[in-house]
Design a protein around this nucleic acid. Structure first.
Lengths: 196, 196
DNA sequence: TTCATTTCTTAATCTACATCAAGTGCCTGC
DNA sequence: GCAGGCACTTGATGTAGATTAAGAAATGAA
């Protein structure tokens, strides 16, 4: 099991003794996903938080016209789950899919609760990463309420430079909230005008 | 100090001994705000989380055209802060203003850190309410990406029925992401068509 | 009570972005 | 290695919601 990335990412926020680290690892299971393979589908109950060790995943919903809306991307070092469904244990409407061959570590809801009891420090860890995630969603919502598509695209480029060339353009279009057609036109326009 | 609401709201997620509760209360300070008074302004560093005991507050940003965008409302029993600024201790761009005469309890960042050390259970409490807040923002972002204004308004009505008549319409318009003019027309249209 | 300010409404016009349609290139699964 | 689908582009047209303007109604301060 490839655990160095996850332990390193935890150590940014809390200090674990070797025993605590070892115990944490026993609560995880590995999984490999093929390109286009789903970890979770609309209507299912989310039972795991997933930590990406390699590859990339995306979370998206499908609206009543059949259009996808990308909620988030998860490159290596990030967590992904349907938080609504994970917390409530009710069916959610998120799909989680591998964009390419991807290795993940799974922490089940039951094991997460166990972890909180055995090593309460993890409350702190998950509090902090949840806070960071909350701030990112607030920022993105603000962008959607107050900026034009082109500015949202600029922000995306600034915030996630490594993802721009790694993802299909249609997914980036969906993430920033425009159609692939409009996104294509926007890029052409940006290229045409002198780089700013 | 009016502390029954805050203690009751905490007891939904963690159990406190009388001593722990009493200690927590010593970390708070009260504040009264007049209608239109600001708790935090764009460019300031956020030093407090505020819990509303009575009245109502709103958090909003101002875009480069001078338009307000309401990020959230905080009726009694809710917390409000500029999470980005509170976490990073850098200047934020949120304004927090009282919509009407409002009583709040303030927990300073320093006292919050103290609290985590003295009563680690509070890590759990704030983890849980942060998770809930995260889910709400995800849901709202999804609505903004996939629904028409009218559907977003319907969802708002369903989720926050008590706020509809308590808030100025222009603030609700801003929250769901339309202009007051369009909001007004939308409502007229809904009234005209047979209630669905 | 009265005035001034803010909020709300209605109407005419405008625009950012969507939709529909069609063609090109490139993966990728067989 | 080939075929068939998927991603991407470009053009023509459509529309949800913005903008501008102006009057009416509500609200709060004095």
């Amino acid at each position: 099991m490839e655990t160095s990335l996850i332990l390193q990412s935890i150590s940014k926020y809390i200090h674990l003794t070797p025993e605590e680290g070892a115990y944490f690892i026993t609560l995880l299971q590995t999984k490999q996903l093929k390109r286009k393979e789903f970890l979770l589908e609309d209507g299912e109950i989310c039972k795991y938080s997933a930590f990406i060790t390699s590859g990339c995943m995306k979370g998206f919903t499908v609206d009543h016209n059949g259009f996808e809306h990308v909620m988030n991307f998860a490159p290596p070092g990030w967590w992904i789950a349907d938080m609504y469904s994970l917390i409530s244990q009710k069916p959610g409407n998120l799909n989680i899919e591998a964009n390419e061959p991807t290795d993940i570590l799974l922490l089940s809801k039951a094991n997460q609760e166990k972890l909180y009891i055995q090593v309460p420090k993890f409350e702190r860890f998950f509090r902090i990463i949840t806070e960071n995630s909350l701030v990112a969603y607030q920022q993105r919502l603000m962008d959607n309420l107050s900026l034009a598509a082109e500015e949202r695209y600029n922000n995306f480029c600034k915030r996630y430079p490594s993802l721009i060339n790694a993802l299909p353009k249609k997914d980036i279009a969906s993430y920033i909230g425009v159609t692939p057609e409009f996104f294509s036109r926007m890029q052409a326009k940006i290229l045409r005008s002198p780089a700013k």
